[in-house]
Write a protein that binds this DNA or RNA. Sequence first.
DNA 1: CTTTTTTCTGAACATTCGTTCAGTTATTGT
DNA 2: ACAATAACTGAACGAATGTTCAGAAAAAAG
Lengths: 195, 195
Amino acid sequence: MARTQGSHSDITGPRIREAALRLFAQHGYAAVSMRQIAKEVGVQAGALYNYTPDKQSLLFNLMAGHMAELQAAWDSVPQADSALKRLRAFTGFHIRFHLERPDAVFIAYMELRNLTEENFTVIESLRRDYENGVEGILKQGVEQGEFAVPDTKIATLAVIAMLNGVNTWYRSEGRLSLDEVERVYWGMVQKAVST
Amino acid sequence: MARTQGSHSDITGPRIREAALRLFAQHGYAAVSMRQIAKEVGVQAGALYNYTPDKQSLLFNLMAGHMAELQAAWDSVPQADSALKRLRAFTGFHIRFHLERPDAVFIAYMELRNLTEENFTVIESLRRDYENGVEGILKQGVEQGEFAVPDTKIATLAVIAMLNGVNTWYRSEGRLSLDEVERVYWGMVQKAVST
DNA sequence: CTTTTTTCTGAACATTCGTTCAGTTATTGT
DNA sequence: ACAATAACTGAACGAATGTTCAGAAAAAAG
């Protein structure tokens, strides 16, 4: 056997990335073999190398793609004038974006240690960009007297960490709807940074 | 060669656990081989099996030990009467305990997916016990009118997630002292749950 | 000193790993 | 219809994996 019926680059490529994403999130990068990914796609291990130069690049591209998507999505959210409204918009955006991609989120900060040094630097830089956007909101709020935080950098990380926590427990079949979750978290975020 | 000079069970045992803890935290459970751990200790791989039946038990015991320590340490903290004081004590305790054991903390919630099903159940149960203790404080605070949170379970997870975030950025040589970090976080926690 | 026990070595085991590649087949272009 | 290209197979590579075990040496017990 060789090339199979209906085989296409534009189909196999995404399927490989999807399978890798799910398996990496489930078992961890190091614990997943190229053969497992191939099996999931319905292909032999060697075929993967038509789509990625190696396993490391597969991981890196998943993470870099996720971070780029995250930044682009947030950039496309219209910004209000007041810091309070902007922070509220961010809270909702961050929760929803992350709940829609639990696997990518999980990988993006669980598999940092499995990146090569250069790849790690790139991802870390993307993450910092995103964090800086949030810190900008807090700084604005402090300047305009809407917020009171002793340290905007720490507050930024604290808010993000708190929101990230949703991914560890939220289930769509669960007790609370997405709107309710958003409202509860916004209540806490708002109070935490308020004057 | 065989048994080496000065070899002792009470020395090698802890050294194996220390090496495993550090290596697992640094590279991940699946990415660390028994030979790497052995090399760190200065021993051959086979010798490790005098101290652990297998690699999985090594991981499980590290995690279970950490969770037991955590619970015991918190249990030994004297409890104040008011919920506000208790929550303040918890905030300080949690931050300090976790900053003192970054590797164990990292492993305890990064390597959950590498546990067997039964081992996972055990660790999850220990974690829930700890979380329930915190929720008890919030419940008390709500009953006594000191706190206002729409959902004590979510608030518990949000507070813990926020505090856990400290481990991702705190460095002892950094800009802020431990006391300052504690004060900043307590400020945010307090406001987040306040009426 | 002699015996027993504890601690470790070094080699071996079957598996699995990431990756390469010559060959084969389906698809595309002419 | 035929030629060219893209997509994949299947086998192979050396290296590394977790684990076992007979034997050797050091330490402890007598």
